[in-house]
Design a protein around this nucleic acid. Structure first.
Lengths: 215, 215, 215, 215
DNA sequence: TATGAATGAGGTTTCATTCAT
DNA sequence: TATGAATGAAACCTCATTCAT
């Protein structure tokens, strides 16, 4: 019994520790995402990240090896999140019309409280400058692009149409468009309407009139 | 005679000075453009800009008020340059087919020895962060967008076709696409073919098959 | 019975605890000695010491009050060890010739797996800087020096010779020479032969030719 | 005349600049020497060095590439100074007796307002840990040692005596002794008399009684 | 106008130490 | 007793900017 108690306590303790550490990590990651998106890689200091997460600089370095590390981890998390969302969409058996409206109203690069489009641009900008970065980014980008291409193929199959260009190219274009327009959205801050990016994507795919015809 | 000589000399000197000042400014701007494109706003130090232009820090501050100032001036120059090019295109009476091939082979954001796409992204990223910046940028962007929209209208008129969306939106999309794909091109460094950006633009406009049909 | 058992268990446990504590202390001290010798006082972090001993930082602070404390304790241990060795030599009734050869082949500051010479220099350097340190060090040094002086007297008595200088001075010189040459040995890493330090000591004592004459 | 004036002014200006820069460098070097000697390599912060020289951190980095750089430069300067002093001694044609008294009263590692012995120990300690350091140090040490060995040879030739060991070994011993005893002198702070180090050197060389006999 | 020495705020990172578990 | 997450001071270094020359 005593032993059992000890074990239970130990497990509980370890869990609490793990949990608390995880919470710290999560908070730091969230702060970092926001600050990177707002001020860029150079614009967000470790000090600021830690402070805005409610911790000290030391806590940051106890959880991440370096500023670059948290940036890279953020990249990983957000790209993975996008990929997963797309994969989930692919996995379901959704009718074409619903797919279209999902896209039209979708979260393509917006929706979180920080602008993922900005982060993406920031990532790519860093990748232009840092070899390590570029490698990681390129790999992730390719995975993402391929998943996206798969979705494009599936979408056109359901619509019984032919894609206007190679699916991989279309995927690249969609991603570039998303980044580029997100950048515009935040910097020009004005005429860009909600849903504009999604409409632009449908335009590229030549699907901008598809929903309307039936309506 | 002496007086006349002195005056002549003074004038000459002043001209020479002005010229030399202009040369210094030009060289500094060029260096700055290259370095900002390569390393981002934070990546290019005033020292480096000055040195790589063949001057000292002092020369830099004799010609520009601050680092931000040269960045803003660069923004102005490059956006103006693009606008002028488009305006020139609009002014001429070019037949539709030629316009298309001009676009297809055009300089849309590439061709200079520094990547203007990167600079553009950098500009927009800064604009997200700095109010002064954002204002200047937004104004310039709007002018640029309108000129571009005019070109789109003219193009479709010549082709006797209807634009697939509002010309201003199309202009925004073209610009966003250019920035986004430029970013991809340099960071993913791989499958992006030369001319890909231009093809993407034609795709958005629904003009990707126009040239082919006749060929 | 139960009570007796419990007491026995408690005692055993206490012993075990004491033993385990001692083991922890010992391991930490050993790690610290190695790391201080390798990287200096500043070069060895508490984290590293603990980790390389197979414990955590917490264990370190459970056993030592501070980093300075373990350094001081190390100083104490090593100086005491040397002194004990010398005292043992003095206590025995060793013939002169044997004493000489013992010195010639001896462990004067080398032989342990970490360089005690380096540690010694490190100790003295710290002593120059820290008053607490300096006091402890000076006291220990004096004890050591006196013991060494005693050995010198005994040695010369056995050899029926007169020391070339005051025994305490000779002791100081021997100790300084040991430290200085150890430092050279590790930093210049070259021509310094094994046994060189011991030969140098005999040279100072004017005993360098003593063994040879008889051979 | 005008031209000549300008040139004169330019030269004067340049000299003033150079002079002022040199003065800064010198002051920084002096501060660094003192602080390194007092607190060791790690004990002297760049901030402290700069401040105690009356400058800002920035001034330090405008004059030295890094903390390591100034340390290495200090090493170079002081070793060179010692070597030069010895070389000067060698160059002159000084009678043996005078040489001896020069050594006895000499500046062997002391005399400057900072303890060169401590600096030397600090250098060697760093050299044990840093490869770059070790290389530079080893080279300098060898030069120094050889010069010292030359002096030893010359000295014994003048005295018509035979060195008690290989001159290079004697040189190593002299240098080690100097470092080791300097360390003792400052850390034990007490019984070490002025001139003790020099006497010890003469003892090693077997010349401790040479002056006395004649007296 | 141009130089470059100097400033000083601020950046990333390390680490001795504390303390809840 | 031992753990290790967190602290926060302090280190090295960078860089936009100023100013005497």
């Amino acid at each position: 019994m005593r032993y059992a108690e000890d074990v239970a306590k130990a497990i509980k303790q370890r869990l609490t520790r793990q949990e608390s550490r995880l919470e710290t990590r999560t908070k730091l990651l969230e702060s970092a995402a926001q600050l990177f998106a707002r001020g860029g890689y150079e614009g967000a200091s470790v000090d600021l990240i830690a402070e805005s997460a409610g911790y000290s600089k030391g806590a940051f370095y106890s959880n991440f090896e370096s500023k670059e590390a948290i940036f890279l981890e953020l990249l990983d998390i957000h790209k993975r999140r996008e990929i997963d969302a797309l994969a989930a969409l692919l996995a379901q058996d959704i009718p074409a019309s619903e797919l279209l409206s999902l896209i039209r109203s979708g979260e393509s690069g917006r929706g979180s409280d920080f602008r993922i489009g900005l982060l993406s641009a920031e990532f790519q900008l860093q990748a232009c400058r840092d070899k390590t970065f570029a490698k990681t980014y390129a790999k992730l980008h390719r995975t993402h692009r391929d998943t996206m291409a798969g979705l494009v193929v599936k979408l056109f199959a359901k619509l019984a149409r032919t894609p206007p260009s190679a699916p991989k190219d279309l995927a690249d274009i969609i991603m570039g468009l998303t980044t580029g327009l997100s950048l515009q959205e935040t910097s020009v801050q004005g005429p860009l309407r909600k849903g504009f990016i999604n409409e632009a994507i449908l335009l590229v795919l030549g699907l901008d009139r598809v929903g309307e015809k039936r309506a």
